[in-house]
Design a binder for these strands. Structure first.
Length: 389
DNA sequence: AAAACCGGGATCTGCCATCTGC
DNA sequence: GCAGATGGCAGATCCCGGTTTT
């Protein structure tokens, strides 16, 4: 059957190459969902034996044409997963139809396949199942399409729908509610493609850590860390452990303090790569010491504002410097460290505007710097009015 | 009414290494 | 030996506004 189809397919391709509509009708037909392989003997003339070997691993020409027609970046696909292009049976049209049905544009479909070619090896049944599982968490098809467009690999990397289902059950069993699951799948979709074992390991690791640090409710601790740091389950326990060990040994932090830090705003610093965390803390300490701070100040800063460890050394330095240059004291910054969260540019600009108004930071504090743009502008207007009077 | 506290949103993927099963 | 499945890595903040307190 396929043998007789081949010449016809070829003819159709060349006949309609200029007529997009005609081809669309053709490729949409379910009988043609699978690419067809050309019998090797018919299309290759090989004079020397060295060409016989690559023959076996030759790409499927019809598949290439089909993908090209769909707007797929074949070069990119080849670079990512060359094996897929050699397959006899693929489901690119089925996939495209499926995704179109869910509201994906042609461009999005092409981009998905270009970036994660293996997507075209998934069957219609598999896709329906997987979609249904995701839809159990998301409110609309469009939400899922947005994720796929962002990260095709998250959806397509695993073919194990049972495992996906088990993950959902497992994560729910931790006490994560519908809203948490939604945030988790939106933010770190890869979590759901992890094997349940891997996710279990991380949860167990966190529970063990809670026990080690003298926590009360270990399950609650794990849950808190996950909901504070949605990326945690796509980290390795090795990384998380190394970071915790490092924090433990770095400054005089007691177990209860560390426990509180990790399930509070400090949960996110577990994401950092070990080296980055080490470097940032080291440079932070150096910088603060050079500004006359005590070790206790460093600890206090990290405990009440752990995000500071996210800021690269150079950025941090320039932020501190521009604040200090305007007469703001280190003590004030330590009191309201959240100001460091704003970009250097933003801080600089605000400082300039406030200096124009002769704002007295000593008297009024620096809270004004840590405000949304809207609120800051409103505040500035009020100040201008006052100084006019 | 203003200030202070606090949590959340954006987006964090795309690549490589290793194993597994055929 | 191949392709598929899976684990793991590097990368490196900024901003907004609802709610509570004063």
């Amino acid at each position: 059957m396929t043998m007789t189809l081949v010449p016809g397919v070829r003819a159709l391709w060349s006949l309609h190459r200029t007529s997009v509509r005609a081809i669309s009708c053709f490729v949409a037909s379910p009988t043609h969902l699978f690419s067809v392989d050309i019998p090797r003997g018919l299309c290759t003339i090989s004079a020397n034996t060295s060409e016989l070997k690559p023959l076996a691993g030759r790409e499927n020409e019809l598949l290439l044409e089909s993908l090209t027609f769909m707007g797929v970046d074949v070069k990119m696909a080849r670079q990512r997963q060359p094996g897929v292009l050699r397959k006899f049976i693929t489901n690119e049209q089925g996939l495209a139809n499926f995704l179109h049905g869910k509201g994906a544009s042609r461009k999005v479909v092409a981009s998905i396949i270009s970036r994660y070619p293996r997507a075209i090896t998934r069957t219609g049944e598999h896709l329906e199942q997987r979609w249904a599982l995701w839809r159990g968490i998301f409110k609309s098809d469009q939400e899922i399409i947005n994720i796929l467009d962002r990260s095709p690999e998250s959806f397509f990397r695993s073919s194990d729908n049972d495992n996906l289902e088990k993950n959902i059950v497992f994560l729910s069993s931790l006490g994560l509610d519908a809203k948490d699951l939604h945030r988790l799948l939106t933010t770190a979709p890869r979590t759901f493609s992890n094997s349940v074992e891997l996710n279990r390991q991380m949860v167990k690791f966190l529970e063990d850590m809670s026990a080690e640090l003298g926590g009360q409710d270990h399950r609650q601790f794990a849950k808190a860390v996950i909901s504070r740091n949605l990326y945690i389950l796509i980290r390795s326990t090795k990384r998380v452990k190394a970071n915790i060990d490092f924090l433990k040994g770095s400054f005089n932090i007691s177990d209860p303090e560390l426990l509180a830090l990790l399930q509070g705003t400090g949960a996110e610093i577990l994401d950092l790569s070990n080296e980055y965390l080490k470097r940032n803390l080291k440079r932070l300490q150096e910088k603060m010491m050079s500004l006359g701070c005590q070790k206790a100040n460093v600890k206090k800063l990290i405990i009440c504002y752990p995000t500071v460890l996210f800021i690269g050394p150079d950025t941090l330095s320039s932020k501190l410097d521009c604040l200090l240059k305007r007469g703001i004291s280190m003590a004030q910054i330590l009191e309201k460290p959240k100001v460091l969260e704003y970009s250097t540019q933003n801080i600089t600009q605000r400082l300039e505007e406030l200096t124009k108004l002769q704002y007295d930071f000593k008297k009024n504090g620096i809270n004004i710097l840590d405000m949304s743009r809207k609120r800051f502008d409103a505040k500035l207007e009020r100040l201008a009015l006052l100084s006019d009077e």
